[in-house]
Amino acid sequence: MTAASSPTPALAGVQAIAQAYAAADAAAAFLAIDAYAHATLAHALCTINRYDAGAMRVLRLYSSNPVAYPPGGSKDKAGTAWGRHVLQERRVFVGEGEDAIREFFDDHGAIRELGLRSVINVPVVYGGACLGTVNFLMPRPAVSDADVHAARLAGLLALPAFQALDRP
């Protein structure tokens, strides 16, 4: 890249994530990861949650729509199929269509009102432990394998921010 050329959107996204990590700013990293993933996923909502394994709860750290889903909100996932799948078994969850969203999410009405019809939830895992999730909700009723791969990459990009949250 020459001094006169501009970085591609993908490179600009990577640079924004790198700058956030260089500044030790997890919130800026989450924002940059959301923007970077949006170029591929065209999602309408991104949330990032920290997982408290002892309480089997997730706490929202980041939301691209803080009015509908404010940071600080939490959800109890004890005894839920979603909690077992994503948090305990550490597997990506893909929900396609309104029926899947209604089946797995208590807040399905709010999700429907936002016009969201599919979801990809990515567990952020290190050393066999789930630290949290990166979640993308889309208005389209189905997602592709490429969408799932892009969401998984976003989850990997979020790992340093989750690790930093546990440091004194």
Rank of each mutant, 00 (worst) to 15 (best):
R60G: 03
G95Q: 02
W82K: 12
K77S: 09
L59N: 10
A44F: 06
A26H: 08
A37F: 05
P71D: 00
A16I: 05
F105H: 11
A78K: 13
Q15F: 14
V94Q: 00
A44V: 01
Q19Y: 01
V58M: 12
V119T: 14
E113Q: 13
V14T: 12
Q88S: 10
G95W: 03
L114F: 01
A16E: 01
Y69K: 05
G127F: 08
D106G: 15
T80H: 08
D107Y: 08
D25L: 02
L59S: 10
D107K: 08
Q88I: 14
A12Y: 03
D25F: 02
M56A: 15
D25S: 07
V119W: 09
Y51K: 04
Y21I: 11
A53M: 04
A68D: 05
R112D: 04
P9W: 05
V122G: 02
E98I: 08
Y21N: 03
A110R: 14
V125Q: 02
A100F: 11
S5V: 12
I120G: 06
A20I: 11
V119N: 13
S5F: 13
P7K: 10
G115P: 00
F30W: 11
M56I: 08
A27H: 15
A81M: 08
V122R: 03
G13I: 02
A20P: 06
A26P: 15
A32P: 03
G54E: 12
L11P: 00
A110H: 11
R112Y: 07
I33W: 05
P66Y: 06
V122A: 03
R117V: 00
M56N: 14
A26G: 12
A24E: 14
H85I: 04
A39K: 10
N121F: 09
L45D: 00
I33S: 04
R91E: 12
D107P: 02
S64M: 08
P7R: 11
Y51P: 06
T2G: 15
A28M: 06
K75A: 14
E96D: 07
R102F: 08
A18D: 11
R90G: 01
L31G: 11
R84H: 13
S74V: 07
F93I: 10
A3K: 10
Q19T: 12
Q15Y: 12
R91P: 08
A3E: 09
N65M: 13
N65Q: 15
Y36I: 05
V119F: 13
A22G: 11
G127K: 09
D107L: 02
D34K: 00
V122S: 03
A23Q: 13
L116Y: 01
A35L: 13
Y51S: 06
L87T: 02
G95R: 03
A28E: 07
S64Y: 05
L45Q: 03
R50S: 08
D52M: 05
R112C: 03
A24L: 14
L116V: 01
R90D: 00
T80D: 01
A26F: 10
R112T: 08
L45S: 01
G79L: 07
D99Y: 08
G83C: 09
F104L: 11
Y69Q: 07
V92I: 15
G109I: 09
N65C: 10
